[in-house]
Amino acid sequence: MRVSIYRFNPETDTKPRMQDYDVAPEAGDKKLLDVLMRLKTMDDSLSFRRSCREGVCGSDAMNINGRNGLACLTSLQGMKEPVVLRPLPGFPVIRDLIVDMTQFFAHYHSIKPYLINNEALPERERVQSPAEREKLNGLYECILCACCSAFCPSFWWNPDKFIGPAGLLQAYRFISDSRDTATAERLAYLDDVYRLYRCRTIMNCTEVCPKGLSPSHAIERIRLALVRESS
């Protein structure tokens, strides 16, 4: 199988280049990450992040044949060749397929991704009904791999000001949490032409989410919550 990979070494290269590899997958190789690991043994200068190899850690997000995805969840079966691998679009490249996620996580931290509740601590726990817990489904599963934000044109044009689909999905996760008491403050923070309203509902985020989540739906709900809040 032929794999064409974006290469950039900041110490020796001034510009990125594409490098072709020919590799024969073996019987146990099921996912794209297996092939990448095999390539790594052939050429140990090839750099990419990976850890859990099963779609939980979110490290091996990359642009695979023009769409963002996790190498560990991308099946080799039926892949179009040559397989073209590039780093996440719009993110600064540190080396090869490794991108700088600093700004991405700064946006994540900006939405205060933790429960805020200043009411007196209950004796045992803050109880949540099954129905209230149900509201967090489709939100809490996000692994922050950045596939969505790095596929969002609005994020490409304003990566420093637009929170992006991943951060907004996380914001809605805490807005929807019955135990959180900072909903009004959270909504007020998001009511900004850049932070939330750069979203044009293109839905590229939902198209590429490897966990099958829908950031565009979360954004839709935030906007409706803001309308209710101000009326």
Partner: peptide, 11 residues
């Protein structure tokens, strides 16, 4: 650092 953002190479 370089960035990959060639729109013709994105599906």
């Amino acid at each position: 650092a370089p960035k990959f953002l060639n729109l013709s190479q994105i599906r």
